[in-house]
Design a protein around this nucleic acid. Structure first.
Lengths: 144, 144
DNA sequence: CTCTATGCAAAGTTTTTGCATCCTG
DNA sequence: CAGGATGCAAAAACTTTGCATAGAG
């Protein structure tokens, strides 16, 4: 096995990522980031809380809320707000994508591709604005 | 002045709109619909509650919540959910549009045009879905 | 008149906050 | 060590709900 220290290029270690963002790498923050990085779905605060307790049953929900806000502010994670359901989170995606909700199954589908982003950026630009963030929620029904 | 009864074509009278939707035209529902129709901004539940009390100081917040849900379900109004701020409402727009939030001033700007809607519909269609509803939230900063 | 809608108040949810203690840097 | 981070519990904010009464159709 290689025992080389990891390169300075791209951090994949949660604690490292936190420090690079200028944040203290506490046990709780590291856990939250690890949990989110390992999630393919988009967990809610409660989902994260449950998983975090499996790693350390003394974490408090208050810390989870504080950490989610911190990571979101630092741009490390993204908050997805839907009409009724509680907010969900994902690691900040490298490539912008939108979300499609199957209204029959509740399934959340990621829509890849940058066409929409680019069109939006162009339109908003014409209005005299720079886009800081953008997010689309689509609700659809599978065709049969 | 004309004293002709209004035409049967398009109702602009809130009570009439409610009945056409198969709902009872109560004082409270009529007030809420009137308030929303008169709003150029996008009021929150609390905004609507405050204005409704100016018309009838005995309305309860519970009724406002129940009415918003009822009108939304009936498709008469649309709920806009933003990342942090409380939900806002608007009359269901005839033409689909998105919203741009100025992150410095908090101003909410409507983006007209159907280009985005059409592109999205096409992409989602390619995924095998029919679009039921769609909504984009953009956050931007005015260029100087 | 009948049955739904409302007001009121209590209960649920979700999120935030104060404070003493713990722990990272 | 010092100052920020955490756990705990209380509080705040936001919504929903049960029930008796009022009011639309």
């Amino acid at each position: 096995m290689m025992t080389e220290p990891n390169s300075e290029q791209l951090s994949t270690d949660p604690a490292q990522i936190l420090r690079e963002a200028g944040l203290r790498a506490t046990q709780q923050r590291t856990s939250v980031l690890t949990i989110l990085a390992a999630s393919t779905d988009h967990p809610t605060v409660d989902d994260v809380y449950d998983k975090a307790r499996q790693l350390d049953d003394s974490v408090s929900i208050a810390t989870i809320y504080r950490t989610m806000l911190l990571l979101e502010t630092a741009g490390l994670i993204r908050k997805l707000t839907f009409d009724d359901a509680p907010a969900r989170y994902e690691m900040t995606p490298n490539r912008d994508h939108d979300h499609l909700i199957d209204i029959d199954t509740g399934e959340l589908i990621e829509i890849p591709g940058r066409e929409i982003s680019e069109l939006r950026a162009r339109i908003v630009n014409d209005l005299g604005y720079d886009v800081v963030s953008q997010h689309t929620i689509l609700r659809g029904r599978r065709k049969h």
